[in-house]
Structures are given as C-alpha cells and as structure tokens.
Nucleic acid binder design. Sequence first.
DNA 1: ATGTAC
Length: 474
Amino acid sequence: MNLAQFRQRGPFEWEMPRQGAMRVPGVIFASRELLEAMDAKVGEQLANVAGLPGIVEAAYAMPDAHWGYGFPIGGVAAFDAEAGGVVSAGGVGFDISCGVRTLHTGLKLADIQRVQERLADVLYRRIPAGLGSTGALRLSGQAMGAMLRGGARWAVERGFGSPADLARIEESGCMAGADPSAVSEQAKKRQRDEMGTLGSGNHYLEVQVVDALFDAQAAQAYGLAAGDVLATLHCGSRGMGHQIGTDFLREMVIAAPRAGIALTDRELACAPLKSTLGQRYLGAMRAAINCALANRQILTHLAREAFAELFPGIHMPLLYDVSHNTCKEESHLVDGERRRLFVHRKGATRAFGPGHAELPAEYRTVGQPVLIGGSMGTASWVLAGGGQALAFASACHGAGRAMSRHEALRRWQGRGVVDELASRGILIRSPSLRGVAEEAPLAYKDVGAVVEAAEQAGLARRVARLRPLVCVKG
DNA sequence: ATGTAC
C-alpha cells in the first residue's frame, strides 16, 4: 500500500481524504507495518465503497483487511435509508453470517494431553467437513422455512443444544426479519442436506488452550483462566449463503441503472434500502444468517457428543457466537445525532462496548466478546468490545490472508504442513491435503500483530490468547 | 467462501 495517499490521524488510524467520486473519507485502522504490507487493492476498494449512495461517516477497513469481492474483506460501511442508502450483496460477502463460536469445556490442558490423538479422531469422525459435505438432516420444504425463520432457536427446539445457549448468541440466536420467500428454490435445494456441516476453506473446529491473559476483569466475566480448554467453530451458511449472494448480485447488477446507481465496478452491485429488491435481499440475507446460526448450533451439539465420548457427562456452555459477514440495522451516534443505520460488516466483527443493552447481563460491564479466529496452527484471540464504538462498534475478524491460495499451493505441501504442526503438538485432521496447503500458517498475516493494532487503535482490547491443540479442517 | 464455470 502506498502510504502517501493517507493522512495519519493517529499512530493506528489512517485517513484517505475525500476525492473524486468519494462521498466520505476512507479510514484504515492499522499499524504502519500492517498498512505497508496491505494489498493496494484495499485502498482502491475502500475509495469505491466511499462513493456509494447514502454512506455515512466513512468507509472503514480493519487491520486484517485484504482484497475481497467489491468490498474489502475486513471492511465496514454503514448506510442511511433516509439518505438514499443502499445494501450490497458483495458488501456482506458470499458466506453470509460466516462466524466464530467458542465453547467452554471445563477441562484443563493436562486432560487433553492424555487423549489428544483420540479426541482428534473422534471429532473428525463426528463432524462432517469438506467441500460438498452433507449432514444427517434432510430438510423438507416446511422445515426449511422454519429453520430460516428460527435460526439457532429452531435448532434448539429440534434437540440440538439447550435454551441457555441462545443468550450467548448475537440476536439471541434468531435474526428478526428473515423472509424465506425471498430465498430461491436453488438456494434451498443446495442447503437441504448441508445442515450441521463445517464446509471447506478456512472453516474449522479447533480445540484450544488459554495460554495468556491480558485483561483479568474481562477474562473473569467471560469465565476464562490460564490452562482452560476451549472448543471453537468457524463456519457459515454453506451453499445457501453462497447461492443467495450469487442470485442477488445478478439482480442488483441488472437493477442498478434503473435505480440511478452508476457502478464503477460490477462487484459493487447494490440496491437502495428503500426498494423492493433491497428489502428482498435483506429478507433473504437474514434468512441466511439464521441458517448459519442453526448450522453452528447443530455443530455445537455434534462437538458436545464427540467430547462426551471421551469425557462422559461433560458440560460445554457457550462463551459466545459472533457473525462476521452481515448487514444489520443498528442505532449509532453520528456527530452527536442518533441514527438508524444499515451496517455492513464483511470480515469484521461487531464489538459493542460496555453497557450495551444487547449484551448478556454477565458481559455487560466489560463489553462484547470479540472472537478472532487465527490461521491454522497459530493463536486465536478473545477480545472485548471497546467503549469508543469506532467504525460503528466494529473490530477485526481474523488474521487475514497474506497471499493467494494459488501462491500457497506453490510454496507448501499439505502433508508437510500436517507433519510440521504435529511436531509442535498441533493435530490436524482434514479431508483435503490441498486445502491444508492453501491454509498453511504462513499464508496469513501475523494475527498477533493484527489484534495488537486493533487494541492500539481503540477498536477492542485483548483479553485472552488461545493456542491450538487439535484442528478439524474443512 | 462455493455443486471452482451460464
């Protein structure tokens, strides 16, 4: 990235001033080093997003930002419906409501070390993973509609997990305003037998140990102590989200000229919030959010069953569940004025600060848990939402790729990556050695540098670092 | 990310 195009607002905040078609500035939160290493495409895409109708305040990028489809991954943009604002399928991302969920296990590191190989095998046997993987459920048309309206609540009613889980999920596990009739038959067909599956790419189920604490008060509120073992899922809405993205991207490209929206890049396709198409997309996207929440809820049940094979009677309550590919209607202060905004977070995590009414009571004094998935073999992090509510109360979501999948395949072999990690005590199980090579740890940015920049920028503060022990990789 | 592809 060329730093000359930025005005530095602070040590970790860089402004790209308004110019040309930009309606608002672009702002990147990052250290100088992360910004220098960032793909120049992030700057171009941020400027494009800043030119969309009805955008409020600024187009933001998080420290893990990288080149995405239309909008950068690690991007945040909010729109006001009353000011001609838009909703964009590419601004949410194709894996709608992709997210991270972390569970307590009540176990300590020593408990795992005795059974680590067996635990890896049991999890791999019970958790469907990989491209095109299918689960045990086959949803009828009626069940599909109920799932798309009910989300994790639907899954709990079907016996997956417990009602107590719901309080630890954004939106209490059920996204309001879902419209199953806005979801194509093709999207429903693709999802029919994919509930309770991990998927591929950077999705995983990981067993982790808390190996460092940074904020004693927040760690206590979240129930985290050094040596605690956690289980974390990273996955999304599988074929359904992807098909909805594909369907609506096409429609938005076609409809944009009639809505008076000039697209410099077809990947920016969007529709006015106050249009039938915009509202249909929101309804379908919210249904896909529920699909992802239900999917993670079923996977939670499967993970609990797997752990119970080795640890009978184990209790595994949720720490929290975050979605990092969404567009949500939220209330935010802009220049001292409270406004209803449609906040796109694409590869960015909501990070409500202390006192927010939507947080579970036990987390309200310290802020929302912000779950950061590391790359395979590297640390994951638990952060806490900051009090400043920067970038509409958002933070980073992961390490962020440092190179393409193609480049990673050129550099590493899957078997070599598995062996190297095993020598460091990290057991990988995956149906795809090619996928493992694409996900090699060094194909990603340094997640530690990303979360440090997030903290220094005031987006969120570090609470705990998690070291991986077992990883079931899609 | 995704039944790597209307």
